[in-house]
């Protein structure tokens, strides 16, 4: 393992120190070292927006904290859910008196910790409602959509939920919009190499040299097929086929997000996007918002994910609203 770390068991602590030092205009520490809030949060009169998840996916999750986006985030160990108490503390850090929307991804640990945290908050009279992202089409068939994992589509869901909260919508309305956002969103990933959790020191799974795993999860969860690596054009076709087969997108407006998984050069992400754009055009799908970069990664995994969100007027308006964070900035200042 050849990495820029100190004690491999304290990478999260060390990363938090650096994040806070680098972005004092965006991020503020709280009493819980695993909870970071936005500068200026909580905002009174607004529904609080919270997310959280394991570390190692940077800029997710902490990189989406900021005006127009997340109010407070709970950070877990590498690839492990934050504790129930950390989610609970994030709820409190985001609470501006109008309840909290917790928008997170569908993983066993996160589900359990959020469930416990919501109970802890309820006992204090703090109302928390949740939306669970399940945009990964490769992780379960459509008829078992509730088993699907949440991946990069989470980012668009945060954006929508947060923008709705900024419009001073009440908690139920924020939840309705965020749920609509994830229901309109589909993603799929391709992995080209495994990743290494620093504390473990070696990858805990492998992808055969010269092969790619179609539908791989953000922690190396198994995909649908391992096949010899194809051209970027064919990768784009494979991924778009899976997405377009799952939800009718033809003739619609969309937001499209191409994310690297950590170790794939940006140049290659743009190569892939070029082909995604061709496919969209062929299906008369109009990309109104395009995001290409390392938005949701898996440590040093090589690979890429594609996310499509079908837009109606409301989702388009909410995606367009100004926001500023490490990972995503839209419009002028907010």
């Amino acid at each position: 393992m050849n990495r820029v770390v100190n004690n491999p068991e304290e990478v999260v602590e060390d990363a938090v120190t650096g994040l806070l030092a680098a972005h004092p205009d965006l991020l503020a520490a709280t009493d819980n070292p695993r909870v970071i809030r936005a500068v200026g949060a909580p905002k009174s009169g607004k529904v609080g927006i919270v997310t959280g998840g394991g570390s190692g996916h940077e800029p997710a999750f902490v990189g989406y904290v900021g005006p127009g986006l997340i109010d407070a985030v709970a950070l877990g160990e590498v690839f492990a859910s934050p504790s129930a108490r950390s989610f609970h503390h994030a709820f409190k850090a985001a609470d501006g008196g109008h309840g909290v929307a917790c928008l997170y991804g569908n993983y066993a640990g996160d589900n359990m910790n959020v469930k416990m945290a919501v109970k802890l908050a309820e006992r204090e009279g703090l109302v928390v409602k949740t939306v669970v992202a399940n945009d990964d089409v490769a992780s379960a068939p459509a008829e078992e959509a509730s088993k699907r994992r949440g991946v990069a589509g989470e980012i668009l869901t945060w954006k929508v939920g947060a923008a709705r909260a900024d419009e001073r919508a009440d908690l139920d309305a924020v939840i309705v919009s965020a749920q609509k956002a994830i229901d309109a969103t589909r993603s799929i990933g391709i992995g080209l190499s495994a990743c290494t959790i620093p504390a473990a020191g070696k990858p805990n799974f492998t992808i055969k040299e010269g092969h790619m795993e179609v539908g791989i999860g953000h922690h190396g969860e198994p995909g649908v097929a391992v096949v010899p690596t194809r051209s970027a054009r064919d990768m784009a076709a494979l991924m778009m086929d899976a997405i377009l087969a799952d939800l009718p997108f033809a003739g619609e407006d969309v937001a499209v997000l191409v994310s690297g998984l950590g170790a794939t050069p940006l140049m290659e992400l743009y190569i892939l996007y070029g082909h995604v754009a061709e496919i969209l055009a062929a299906h008369h799908i109009a990309p109104r918002h395009r995001f290409v970069g390392n938005y949701f990664t898996s440590l040093d995994m090589m690979g890429v994910s594609v996310t499509l969100m079908r837009l109606d007027a409301e989702l388009d308006r909410l995606i367009s609203a100004p926001a500023r964070s490490i990972g995503l900035t839209i419009g002028g200042k907010s």
Binding site: G54, G76, E77, A80, S81, P82, S83, A84, R85, S86, A108, G109, M112, N113, K115, M116, L120
Partner: peptide, 15 residues
């Protein structure tokens, strides 16, 4: 355990 351990272990043993 609910305070200190995340993942699945914390909530399972915690509860």
């Amino acid at each position: 355990l609910l305070d200190e351990i995340g993942g699945s272990t914390g909530p399972l043993y915690g509860s």
